[in-house]
Design a binder for these strands. Structure first.
Length: 630
DNA sequence: AAAAAAC
């Protein structure tokens, strides 16, 4: 009994046949099938919470009364791609109200005060009322941003913004941005947010630690807030229908994205749930039943949930792939294809799709383009990494000398340690066995170490990460499970005990340090086993103004087989280049790339920061000043 | 050849 032309109707036409309107959001929890007990369920971790941990007396988010048509900016192509139905996203009657103002019935019970939303900012100083619009006067040298090379291609690229205030994210979200103490958008946010708000699909390449999570979360949250409350179909009573899906390649990264997204969506009425393997599924199912707008997940657990019909993707409006190139590499691609193309998700062009990574090899871009419609390619920053914050060293170390060499590094580091505490050191190795062995060896030699890899239980993995973050065990031996996305503050040193075979993996690994405007050190142990990486490594280091040892240059020259996987993706200074711009790209269709492109942004300073040296992104960050950088 | 990702 659908009564209007809505997104749900569109979905019904394109994806499913058993749409039954009339039930409220989220699997009828507040509708006719509502289970009365459900809305009063309080999960164990929230029971008996002292009153002091309730949200402080923040003013309720003011009603959002701004224009509601930002999804429809004329001329950006969003509306035309969507045709009529998309206009229904802009619920004209959206009138705020408590906590972002979902009408009654949304997320049954969620916003009725029965369950208090845990304040994710409770550790932080929320009384601080920095004037949101005074960010021009903070004394931060954001001019440095102007030097960051930016490349966009695609049709009708929306112009970048300079402040959060000038994009229309809504008051509740703006307040959370303020609580996060994000003063000014990072470069990728400046460009990606207006693109996404304009309704466009996006493939974005931006440095590690450059605020990508917020770049895709803000438009999603904002879009859901202003969107029409969907008529979610009733299929099985226990099927839930998230509106947004965020996929990431590791469990810990999904947890981290979830934590971030919870902060951004605090008191917006938008519910974020995370689902990943290795943890009991029942608790995740309970969370899902309590309502979900944004689902953050790893692929395996999501497929499980889909096959159990506990989750349907029929109502997905937003799809985001973090570490998108990893998600589409050989190991992951079939699973991702299944989720995106073979379940009930609306097709590209109907949903909005955002792909983010610090690296984006051409061949992966080609695969990814299957998931996108008329998308904008965005590359921000140099060679896939904030490398000017990271001092990269390469040392020639024979396999048999690696342990003692590591020991020397750690001893030296301990001597220089601040306040007697060992600086956090992240040591990457090639294999899980190798990780365990090295951890053991470090421990018996007096260096408190722990390890994270796929053979450990999820509990062990999470404990290891926590123990590392707190400095309890300041050395973490890791496989590539920890290479991507994880934001671990204060990592002073990344050691590539075993170098990866792929230069992109190296970029991601060293990106675990040098975050939040801090400097970092990355040391690699190179030997004859790594010859195939020599060329790419030497080039990468050169591009980021690092000292390249002469012996490495010789290795690089010798390695004539430096093609294939190890070649810089697209070359040049960017983490990537739109593969559509390659002259040898052809795919039959002509609708692929017809737009213009622009480099270095929108009339901002030209050039690449004088070959890199002056192009630093860190310049001007004062101590204690937080940006949305991380 | 390895790692990750469901039970």
């Amino acid at each position: 009994m659908s009564t209007r032309t809505s997104w749900a109707d569109l979905a019904a036409n394109s994806a499913a046949e058993n749409v039954t309107a009339g039930s409220s959001a989220n699997n009828g929890a507040a509708g006719t099938t509502s289970a009365p007990g459900r809305s009063t369920y309080v999960p164990p971790h929230l029971r008996n919470r002292p009153a002091s941990s309730d949200p402080p007396a923040l003013a309720p988010a003011p009603a959002y009364n701004g224009p509601v048509a930002s999804n429809d900016r004329p001329g950006y192509g969003g509306a035309s791609r969507w045709g009529g139905p998309r206009n229904d996203f802009n619920r004209s009657g959206y009138s705020g109200g408590r906590a972002g103002g979902w009408g009654g019935g949304r997320s049954g019970g969620w916003d009725r005060g029965r369950e208090r939303e845990v304040n994710p900012f409770e550790d932080e100083d929320v009384t601080e009322e920095q004037a949101f619009n005074e960010q021009e006067n903070t004394g931060i040298n954001f001019d440095a941003y102007e030097d960051i090379p930016v490349e966009t291609s695609g049709d009708n690229v929306p112009p970048a913004v300079n402040t959060f205030a000038e994009v229309d994210l809504g008051d509740a979200l703006n307040q959370n941005i303020r609580r996060c103490k994000y003063v000014k958008p990072t470069p990728v946010q400046r460009h990606a947010i207006p693109i996404s708000l304009g309704g466009r699909d996006l493939m974005a390449c931006a440095q590690t630690g450059s605020g990508k999570t917020a770049a895709f979360c803000f438009p999603i949250i904002s879009g859901i807030m202003r969107g029409q409350t969907p008529q979610r179909p009733v299929r099985g009573a226990r099927t839930v229908y998230p509106l947004a899906l965020i996929l990431s390649p590791t469990r810990e990264l999904s947890m981290q994205i979830h934590d971030e997204a919870k902060k951004f969506s605090y008191q917006t009425g938008v519910k974020v749930v995370v689902a990943y393997g290795g943890a009991p599924i029942n608790q995740q199912l309970r969370e899902l039943e309590r309502g979900v707008d944004i689902l953050v997940a790893t692929p395996g657990r999501l497929v499980d949930l889909l096959e159990r019909a506990r989750v349907s993707l029929q109502m997905i409006r937003y799809l985001a792939l973090d570490e998108a190139d990893r998600m589409l590499d050989m190991g992951f691609e079939p699973q991702i294809r299944k989720i995106v193309e073979q379940m009930d998700m609306p097709p590209a062009g109907v949903r909005q799709t955002m792909l983010f990574s610090a690296t984006f090899p051409k061949e992966i871009q080609r695969l990814a383009s299957d998931f996108l419609a008329s998308y904008i390619f965005l590359a921000v920053g140099r060679v896939g990494s904030s490398t000017d914050l990271i001092v990269q060293r390469v040392e020639f170390v024979h396999e048999s000398d690696k342990r003692s060499h590591l020991m020397d590094l750690l001893h030296a580091q301990r001597a220089n340690g601040v306040q007697g505490k060992q600086a956090l050191t992240l040591v990457f190795v090639e294999t899980k066995k190798g990780a365990d062995a090295l951890e053991h060896w470090l421990c018996i030699n007096g260096f408190p170490a722990t390890t994270i890899h796929g053979d450990r239980t999820q509990q062990e993995r999470e404990l290891a990460l926590r123990s590392f973050k707190t400095g309890n065990t300041p050395i973490l031996v890791a496989t590539d499970v920890a290479a991507r996305g994880l934001d671990i503050p204060h990592v002073a040193h990344v050691v590539n005990f075993d170098l990866p075979n792929d230069i992109d993996d190296y970029v991601h690994r060293i990106g675990r340090t040098g975050r939040a405007g801090k400097t970092g050190l990355a040391t690699a142990f190179f030997n004859e086993n790594n010859a195939s990486l020599a060329k790419a490594l030497a080039e990468l280091m050169q591009e980021s103004n690092q000292e390249v040892p002469a012996w490495l240059t010789r290795y690089a020259a010798r390695a004539s087989y430096g093609g294939g996987r190890n070649r810089r993706s697209g070359g040049g200074r960017f983490g990537g280049r739109d593969f559509r711009r390659d002259s040898n790209f052809s795919r039959g269709g002509s609708d692929y790339y017809s737009g213009g492109s622009s480099s270095t942004g929108y009339g901002a300073s030209g050039g690449y920061g004088g070959g890199g040296g002056g192009g630093g992104v860190s310049g001007g960050y004062g101590p204690g000043v937080t940006s949305a950088w991380d």
